[in-house]
C-alpha cells in the first residue's frame, strides 16, 4: 500500500464512522494535537469528530535526510472523537485491518504511554500502540487541554504514517517508501529534509527567532487583551508561531536548559489564555441560545 493509499484508506475509514475529514493546519506546527480542530474542539461539551493529515515539523529531529528513520517533518494522521466511543479500541484495531494488517498474525499491543504537552498545558492517559515492536500510533484519552479539565473526555488517535507505510511496504529506509503514482518519498522530500535541517541547525538567525518569539507572543496577548474584539483564533495563530520559533531556537542550540523551561511556560500561558477565551465564547453562545 502506498503512502497515499494509506491516507485515503484511513480517511475513508473514519469518514464512514462519522468523522469530518479536515485538512492540515496551514502553518508550521509540531503535532496534529496543536491543530485548532483538536486543541480547541476538545474543550467544552459539544460533540466533535474529525480526522486529518498533519505534516508535523520537529526541527531538532532533522537529520539532513541521511537517517533512514528520522525526519524534520513527518506526517501524522490525526483522529479526534468527542466523546470517546465505548468500543474505540476495537474501532481503532479495525482501522488497522482496513490497512491490511491482520492483528492475529502480528503482535499488536497497547502499552502504557501517557502523553503530555507542556507548551499546550495538556495531558492525557493512554498507550503507544506497538506493531511487532514498532510504535505506530499514540492513543490518548485527553484529560486536560489549555490547563482546563475536560468533560466529556475526547480520544485522540495519532497514526505515524511513515512508520506504518514502512511496515506495510517492508522497507528499512523512509526515503525508499513509495508515496504514490510511482514516486518515491526520496523524490518528494529528501532535498526538503536536507535544506530544512541545514537551516534549523546552521542558518537560522537566533537573534531574529528570539525577537520573533517575543513579538509573536506579544501579538497574541494584544488580541486577547482587546476585550471588545477578542480574536482568540488569531491569537492562537500567533501562539503556534511562537512555538515553532522556539523549536527552531532549540534545534539551533540557542536555548539553555533553564531558559527552556521559561520559554515553554510563556507559550503555555498564551495557549491556556486562548483556551479560556474559547470556552468563554462557547459559553456565551450557549447562554444566548438558551435565552433566545
Amino acid at each position: 500500500m502506498t503512502l497515499q493509499q494509506i491516507i485515503m484508506s484511513l480517511s475513508r475509514y473514519w469518514a464512514e464512522r462519522g468523522c469530518l475529514v479536515h485538512q492540515p493546519w496551514d502553518a508550521e506546527i509540531g503535532a496534529g494535537t496543536m491543530h485548532p480542530e483538536t486543541f480547541l474542539r476538545v474543550l467544552g461539551p459539544a460533540p466533535w469528530k474529525a480526522a486529518y493529515v498533519q505534516p508535523s515539523r520537529r526541527p531538532a529531529d532533522g537529520r539532513y535526510g541521511e537517517n533512514p528513520n528520522r525526519l524534520y517533518k513527518h506526517h501524522q494522521f490525526q483522529v479526534i472523537l468527542k466523546p470517546s466511543p465505548q468500543e474505540i479500541q476495537d474501532v481503532y484495531l479495525a482501522s488497522l485491518v482496513a490497512l491490511g494488517i491482520d492483528p492475529a498474525l502480528h503482535d499488536v499491543r497497547f502499552e502504557e504511554d501517557n502523553w503530555e504537552s507542556p507548551t499546550l498545558g495538556a495531558w492525557g492517559i493512554g498507550w503507544q500502540v506497538l506493531l511487532d515492536g514498532q510504535e505506530i500510533t499514540q492513543f490518548t484519552y485527553f484529560q486536560q487541554a489549555g490547563g482546563i479539565e475536560l468533560a466529556p473526555i475526547s480520544v485522540e488517535i495519532t497514526y505515524g504514517l511513515e512508520r506504518i507505510a514502512m511496515y506495510l511496504q517492508n522497507v528499512d529506509d523512509v526515503f525508499d517508501l513509495e508515496w504514490g503514482a510511482g514516486v518515491r518519498y526520496r523524490d518528494v522530500r529528501r532535498e526538503e529534509e536536507y535544506q530544512l535541517s541545514r537551516y534549523s541547525f546552521e542558518q537560522a538567525g537566533t537573534d531574529l527567532h528570539r525577537d520573533l518569539f517575543e513579538r509573536y507572543l506579544a501579538e497574541g496577548w494584544k488580541l486577547l487583551d482587546d476585550t471588545e474584539r477578542r480574536s482568540y483564533l488569531s491569537a492562537y495563530d500567533w501562539c503556534l508561531k511562537s512555538s515553532h520559533a522556539f523549536n527552531v531556537l532549540d534545534a539551533r542550540g540557542a536555548v539553555s536548559v533553564s531558559e527552556r523551561a521559561q520559554l515553554i511556560l510563556k507559550i503555555r500561558k498564551l495557549a491556556c489564555a486562548v483556551a479560556s477565551a474559547y470556552v468563554a465564547h462557547q459559553d456565551g453562545d450557549a447562554r444566548e441560545g438558551a435565552s433566545g
Partner: peptide, 30 residues
C-alpha cells in the same frame, strides 16, 4: 528475546522487531 501476546511468533514479527532495534542502534552507533 522478546515477548509476544499469542501462541507463537512468526518470522514476520521477529523481522519487525529486528528492524526497530536496528534503527535505534544505528542512531546510537552514530
Amino acid at each position: 528475546a522478546a515477548v509476544v501476546n499469542g501462541d507463537a511468533g512468526s518470522e514476520e514479527i521477529v523481522r519487525g522487531m529486528e528492524r526497530v532495534v536496528v534503527a535505534r542502534l544505528r542512531d546510537a552507533a552514530f
